[in-house]
Design a protein around this nucleic acid. Structure first.
Lengths: 151, 151
DNA sequence: CCCGATGAGTTGCATATTGAAACCATTCTG
DNA sequence: CAGAATGGTTTCAATATGCAACTCATCGGG
């Protein structure tokens, strides 16, 4: 299960914590929105620019970083200068993170009567709520878990 | 299921997208690390400062924002000037997000032989891998789902 | 009661990151 | 071939961040 992510030349905020490392790679204002859009069929520079509204120079930088970190790969269309950015396996694996952020937002960042976009399966139904569980499938939460350092 | 989050006075990057709203609330360089530490028994200003290493003025600002958004609550300890920051229910509910970030980091941001901290249940065993599923418990991913706007 | 230490910030200033707008070189499109 | 679109880069102003020093309590000893 090792990564396509190239993690040389990164200076980690907290080298032993996986949460911190993930945030060092994608935890800025725009990267996760770019990834969200990549998961929703955005491919070109302009797709991302229009959907996120990010400044173009910043977008250039973020796309480059995400490519460098192995989350996106850049492909030049056969003839011509059209660039396409596609999620790598590591990038696609961020789906769980995006779903978790989305579900939290649905629960806590909208008033009851406010409309919002929804993520649905092939039958058009919403996904089940993500819930952390132990190895036996029993739900766990903050109080029933703990962090062990440097295992 | 409505929020303790106070979402007035926030100007959303993308008002209809729950992912974007969540990121507007916690998607900066430090907030999620503060929340991670709050889940790991950090309580005081100095706890957070020492664990994250964030600049003190920034920490002041982030704690205030998180309190304003209903993710932390601030309590003054009975005797003395000691301040304590505790997760609200909405804050505790970010556990899923933190676990998702952690598990992704474990899979993609560490070399195979690198040590990292681990999150374990009461028996000391690692949690099960979080996986998005549909309403019937079948796994779904980027390709088998889609976003419906403004539902 | 006085002294130093600690907790919880604030303030000022230097540096880094972002954003808005303009500019540029190809490459399609009609 | 002219005009738009694509995928950027450049410039400069506005923000945000980091660092160090400074406050202003209170706490704990002696």
């Amino acid at each position: 299960m090792n990564s396509a992510v190239h993690v040389d030349d990164v200076t980690w905020t907290d080298p032993t914590c996986p949460v911190a490392r993930t945030l060092d790679l994608v935890g800025d204002r725009w990267s996760l929105l770019i990834i969200r859009d990549a998961m929703d069929n955005a491919r070109s520079f302009t797709d991302f620019q229009q959907r996120t509204g990010v400044a173009r120079n910043i977008l250039t930088d973020r796309l480059r970083r995400l490519v460098d970190h192995g989350i996106l790969k850049r492909e030049t269309a056969i003839s011509g200068r059209r660039q396409v950015y596609v999620l790598t396996d590591a990038g696609r694996d961020l789906f769980t993170v995006i779903v978790a952020l989305r579900q939290w937002g649905e629960r806590h960042a909208f008033a009851d009567d406010e409309a919002h976009s929804a993520l649905v399966d092939e039958g058009g139904n919403p996904l089940a709520r993500l819930r952390p569980t132990d190895a036996h499938g029993h739900q766990v939460d903050v109080d029933s878990t703990e962090v062990i350092r440097n295992s």
